[in-house]
Design a binder for these strands. Structure first.
Lengths: 128, 128
DNA sequence: ATAAGGGTTCCAGTCACTGGAAGGTCAAGG
DNA sequence: CCTTGACCTTCCAGTGACTGGAACCCTTAT
C-alpha cells in the first residue's frame, strides 16, 4: 500500500502519516523506488493513532498507549492511568472555557451592539 | 517605569511585554541607556491586553479590540461582533471537549484498572 | 515524447509565548 | 576605583502537531 491509499483508509492526511514516521510512531518499509510501503500493521497503528488523537491524547500519550497496546503483558491500570490523567485535564480545560464563556456571555448581553461608541465590553477590559 | 515594574503592575511576564512590543501592540519609548520607558497609557494597554487574553481572545482579536478601544467613534456593534464570534468558538470548543470527555469517561469506567492486560480502552482505540 | 498524477525531501510557517546565552547599565558597598 | 548583583538589552531556538510549498523523482498512459 502506498501513502495515499493509507491516507484514504485511515482518514489521516499523507503529510501527517509522514510526520508520524518522522517522530518514530510507525516504521513503514521502503520499495525499490524509495516509496513508503505500508503493511496492515502500519495501517492498523495509524487508525489507532487517529482515534487516540481524536480523543485529544497528546502525541506522547499516543506513543505510550501504542506501546501498551503492543505489550501483551501490560497492566490495564497503566492504560487507565493515562486515560484518567487526560480526562482530568480535559475537565480542567472545560472549566476554564466555561468560566470565559460565562463572563463573555454576560458582557455580550450587556452590549447594545449599535452605532454608538459606548460599550460595556471595552469598559470591562479597560479596568477589570 | 521600567519593564519589571510594569510586569509587576500588570501581572504579565517581562518577556511577554517585549513580545507585545515586537508585534506592534505597544510602543514604549526608550531612555538614553536603551531601556524601555513605559508611560501610564502603555501600562493601561497592557492590562487591557492581559484581560482580553485571559478571556481567550487571540492576539489579532486583541489588536482589533485595542484599536476599537482607542477609536472614540467606534460602533459598539463592532466590539460585540468580535466578542460574539469568539463566544461561539468557545462554545464549539467546549462541545468538542465534552464529547471527548463523555467517550473517555465511559471507557475509563469500563476499565478494571488492575494488573491484567485486558483493557476496553485499548480495545476501543484498536477498532472504533 | 510528454503529460498527469503519484511519490520523495527539506524548509518555513503556524500561535503565543518561553528559555537561555551573551553582553550592556546601574546603584551600593568596600 | 573595583566589584557584586540586579537590572536591562538583543537574538536565537524551541514548544505541539501539524501544514503549505518548492523542487525534484517515478510510473503509467497516450
Amino acid at each position: 500500500m502506498n501513502i495515499s491509499d493509507v491516507a484514504k483508509a485511515t482518514g489521516l492526511p499523507a503529510k501527517t502519516i509522514r510526520y508520524y514516521e518522522d517522530i518514530g510512531l510507525i516504521y513503514p518499509t521502503r520499495g525499490d523506488n524509495g516509496y513508503r510501503v505500508f503493511a496492515d500493521t502500519d495501517v492498523h497503528k495509524l487508525a489507532f493513532l487517529g482515534r487516540a488523537r481524536a480523543l485529544g491524547f497528546s502525541i506522547e500519550d499516543c506513543r505510550t498507549l501504542l506501546a501498551l497496546y503492543e505489550d501483551d503483558s501490560r497492566a490495564s491500570a497503566d492504560v487507565k492511568a493515562v486515560a484518567e490523567e487526560h480526562l482530568s485535564q480535559i475537565g480542567d480545560k472545560i472549566a476554564q472555557l466555561e468560566a470565559m464563556r460565562d463572563t463573555l456571555r454576560t458582557l455580550v448581553q450587556s452590549c447594545a451592539g449599535d452605532a454608538r461608541p459606548d460599550c460595556p465590553i471595552l469598559k470591562d477590559l479597560a479596568r477589570g
